[in-house]
């Protein structure tokens, strides 16, 4: 009976009593010698629902990367609640996957051994990891490159390897910090479709930091728009476009409308 109840609750339209990720009044400030402390994040609250892709959209240096690092456990918030699946995040969570702004590959390791790094760090001895890594690499179009060195790959290919590395241990939560920011426009659009494809296959919950309005709208179930520093939430926009999303959607009226609303929240359009 209890099971049915909780299932009903989850299926219901009301607010989820225990969302996957829960952020309440998160604040972050940095002490500065001889000056007033720098407030990076001020009272940010939102929920992250299981299986959703939520973008944190904001101008450069607004504190969105800081928030992502707090969720990753790489930093501790000055105040507020940061919970994933009901547990406070206070230290790095190896069961999450993190993709950084740069690929951060180890130049001395082959592509495959870079992907297997998280498994190696956990001292996971199961042989399944290798097969999983190879499968991921072929999924991102890098079959045949597993023994190449990172220096032999283009920037886009390197970032795909980084994506595989973040996914190899099947994380429940994928944290991405402007992962496609340094790529050219065409590669970036390819990578966006790749990410959506992978998310559809794995069902992972994704928190995605970006400063690109179109990227945020194209990818997300929900866009959280941040103001300039100190970061507060300027707007929270649900994107009603259906998945799987196709490049044509970028030209539909809804897409433009949502982009416009995000632009208004950012103060870049009226």
């Amino acid at each position: 009976m209890a099971e049915v109840n909780s299932a009903l609750k989850r299926a219901g339209t009301g607010p989820d009593p225990a969302p996957f990720g829960r952020f309440r009044d998160v604040r972050q400030s940095f002490a500065r010698p001889g000056q007033a402390p720098l407030h990076a994040i001020e009272a940010v609250s939102f929920d992250l629902e299981r299986g959703k892709l939520v973008s944190l959209l904001g101008p450069s240096g607004c504190g969105k990367t800081t928030l992502l690092k707090i969720v990753a456990g790489l930093m501790r918030a000055t105040a507020g609640v940061v919970q994933i699946e009901g547990v406070d995040v206070t230290e790095p969570q190896p069961e999450f996957g993190v993709v950084f702004q740069t690929a951060n590959l180890m130049p001395w390791r082959s592509v495959l051994r870079n992907v297997l790094l998280p498994i190696e760090i956990r001292r996971d001895t199961g042989g399944a990891a290798r097969a999983a890594a190879l499968e991921l690499l072929s999924l991102v179009g890098l079959a045949g490159f597993e023994h190449a060195r990172p220096a032999e790959l283009s920037g886009g290919m390197q970032q795909r390897v980084a994506l595989c590395r973040a996914l190899v241990h099947k994380p429940r939560l994928l944290l991405m910090d402007e992962p496609f920011g340094s790529l050219d426009e065409l590669t970036r659009m390819e990578m966006q479709d790749l990410l959506l494809d992978i998310r559809a296959r794995t069902g992972a919950t994704v928190l995605f930091v970006t400063h690109s309005i179109s990227e945020a709208v194209y990818l997300s179930d929900r866009v959280v728009v941040f103001s300039r520093r100190p970061a507060t939430i300027a707007d929270m926009i649900d994107v009603p476009l259906p998945y799987p999303r196709t490049p044509e959607l970028r030209y539909c009226a809804t897409f433009t409308e949502i982009g416009h609303r995000a632009g208004r929240a950012l103060g870049v359009s009226r």
């Binding site: 790095p92 190896p94 180890m106």
Partner: peptide, 29 residues
């Protein structure tokens, strides 16, 4: 050692020995 690699190791909660042997030392070679 590239700070990005150290942050990656930290996010995976690598032990100090793992950080040394898998990140710092190869990067220093």
């Amino acid at each position: 050692t590239p700070p990005g690699l150290l942050e990656l190791a930290r996010s995976l909660r690598a032990s100090p020995w793992q950080v040394f042997s898998k990140v710092q030392m190869p990067a220093a070679l």
